[in-house]
Amino acid sequence: MGTLLEVKNMSVSYGAIRALRGFSLTLDEREIVAVIGANGAGKSTFMNAVMGMTACESGDVFLDGAALPRESWRIVRSGLSLVPEGRKVFTTLTVLENLRIGAFPLSKPDPRDMDWVFSLFPRLGERREQPAGTLSGGEQQMLAIGRALMSRPRVLLLDEPSLGLAPIIIRDIFAELRRINEEGVSILIVEQNARQALLLSRRAYVLQTGCLVKEGDSKALLADPEIKAAYLGH
């Protein structure tokens, strides 16, 4: 399995505050990698910087060895797709329209893509004509994931997908993420919910106030006493 996505030495500052300091990460083909850390550790900053939404002080991102473009819309076209923090579905548009806008970069959208999303999340199919604003939080998260899949990404990036959702819904969504990965989509996930993220991923990086403090196999991290104490709540 070759390296698909490589982030080298990324730093981001907001004024005097250094939100991310020289963070490097790799994601292999068909791999699931998690970045965990507490609130304010720089996880979302990292995601936004990869997607071109936040300017980096330094750092490079490569996809298949080629440098990513700078503008978000070009990054999406080159094969990355973000499920943003807080879902950010287009509330005034219907479920169907949200999925259609997700396919915007494709010159010829394939109806089978939408069928696939509906097979992953049947509830979206039942509610296809409803405005996205009328969906529950869990359904909006499903829609945000489905929307991101519509551009046929090679890497699906998820920023805090468990945020504000009931545990049972989180379990469902993470199960679908595994199915999505089995279809060949590599996944980079950023989570405060360390347990779920470590259970899902193969490898993980631990961020603390913008610095990498630990990385390794997710199974090993789950058993790591320090990680247990700091992030797993016992």
Binding site: M53, W73, L82, K88, F90, I101
Partner: peptide, 10 residues
Amino acid sequence: CDLRTAGLMG
């Protein structure tokens, strides 16, 4: 609805 997120749609 959301200009910033529209950019994330390509």
